[in-house]
Design a protein around this nucleic acid. Structure first.
Length: 387
DNA sequence: CGCTCCCGCCAAGGG
DNA sequence: CCCTTGGCGGGAGCG
């Protein structure tokens, strides 16, 4: 409608400025989300989305596919996707975790890694549901990864190589592990296989996935020394053997899907592994993240968003989010606000900010809607389901 | 330069 | 058979 992210078109183009970042799946995904959030749509119209985002239809598929893997959208039929929203994430995550457990997935990425060197023999190949086992030689990892082998070898089954599956498997890596940080390289190794340059090629898919997952704030891209890594921000799958581990572990894990991810701010100890030498520096979960980011950029973003959608922001915070949070990030604010006014280029700064808000807003709406809906037969409007 | 990863060709999938 | 999906990898942007 308005605020088209499209580059060219008219007087907005500086010097041939085509910002690749504007077209990144991450940004696209964010826009995609806000697109549907604000409308409270129940179905996803691919053409509409593509048009609005100013991209090829093909890109929408990418987004939708990984979105589907986390339950934000659901495919109903050909050309028909329903919009679930963030509220669908907890459930999807729960399922993923259970699935992962059943597949006797590696319990700990780190241990897998070790086992690799040891060539541990533990495989029993849990068949997925359609394809059973793969005969190919993927190496030691595959034996540990069980059904994961499918992805690598399914030369004939197109489905098995889908972004959807890859994304789900990627997430399982976190859910079933006590580690919440994984190197991109590690993930690629585990998911795509160690050997051959073939994995190298398909690593590109991982980039796609992590981009949209990041934009949803399920993961966060970080730099471990020199290498790119990803930290899990969603529910922490509390490992069954080590309880001192990781984050929040809200009700999502054992409760039903009420109420989106991490609403409580616990000062957790982020467990690190040898995979991530430096890792944690601050407790992080959704609430906090959002809280921080919100504070960091509120002004600009608010302006932006209200301008583009007319939506008015309230003073709300995710339930349970502490207000103390930010202080460690002292003077970052400036950077976020920098050059908003009328200067020439920084378009995506604002955009990024507003995206954040969109996310936040969406989650909020989801919770709210869910509550309202859920309490419709209870006639109550608590802000908490009984914990 | 190596890491990212956008773009869109074109082949499966499925009504 | 045509339209929808979406694997795939060339090659361009970016740090």
């Amino acid at each position: 409608m308005s605020s088209s992210p499209s580059p060219s078109l008219d007087s907005r183009s500086r010097h041939h400025s085509y910002c690749r970042k504007q077209k990144s799946l991450g940004v696209l995904c964010s826009n995609f989300v806000s697109l549907y959030v604000q409308k409270g749509a129940e179905f996803v119209d691919l053409d509409y989305a593509a048009r609005q985002l100013g991209v090829e239809r093909r890109r929408i598929y990418d987004i939708v596919n990984v979105m589907e893997s986390v339950g934000v959208v659901a495919r109903k039929a050909k050309s028909k996707y329903s919009w679930i929203g963030f509220s669908g994430i907890p459930n999807a995550l729960k399922e993923l975790k259970e699935e992962a457990l059943q597949e006797s997935f590696a319990t700990d990425v780190a241990s897998v890694k070790e086992a690799l060197e040891d060539q541990h023999e533990d495989s029993e190949s849990q068949s997925h549901d359609d394809v059973d086992e793969k005969p190919s030689k993927i190496g030691s990892i595959s034996s540990l990864m069980g059904s994961f082998g499918n992805i690598l070898s399914a030369t004939e089954n197109r489905k098995d190589r889908s972004l959807y599956l890859l994304s789900r498997n990627f997430i399982k890596l976190f859910l079933n592990s006590e580690v919440n940080t994984i190197l991109l390289d590690e993930a690629a190794r585990l998911l795509l296989g160690d050997n051959t340059n073939l994995s190298h090629i398909r690593t590109r898919r991982l980039y796609d996935i992590t981009n949209v997952l990041s934009s949803i704030n399920l993961i966060e891209k970080i730099q471990e020394s020199r290498k790119p890594a990803f930290r899990w921000l969603g529910t922490s799958g509390k490992s069954k053997m080590d309880t001192s581990v990781t984050v929040v572990a809200s009700k999502i894990g054992n409760h039903s899907n009420k109420r989106a991810f991490g609403t409580e701010v616990t000062n957790v100890e982020l467990k690190r592994s040898r995979l991530s030498p430096k890792a944690s520096k601050k407790p992080s979960n959704y609430a906090q993240l959002w809280n921080q980011d919100l504070k960091e950029c509120n002004l600009t973003a608010q302006k932006q968003l209200s301008m583009k959608s007319g939506f008015v922001f309230g003073p709300f915070f995710p339930a349970g989010a502490t207000k103390e949070v930010t202080e460690e990030k002292g003077g970052k604010t400036a950077q976020g606000l920098e050059g908003s006014a009328c200067s020439s280029r920084p378009q995506y700064h604002n955009e990024a900010l507003s995206e954040l808000f969109s996310h936040y807003m969406e989650a909020w709406k989801s919770w709210y809607a869910e509550l309202a809906q859920g309490s419709s037969n209870l006639q109550q409007q608590p802000c908490n389901t009984s914990n």
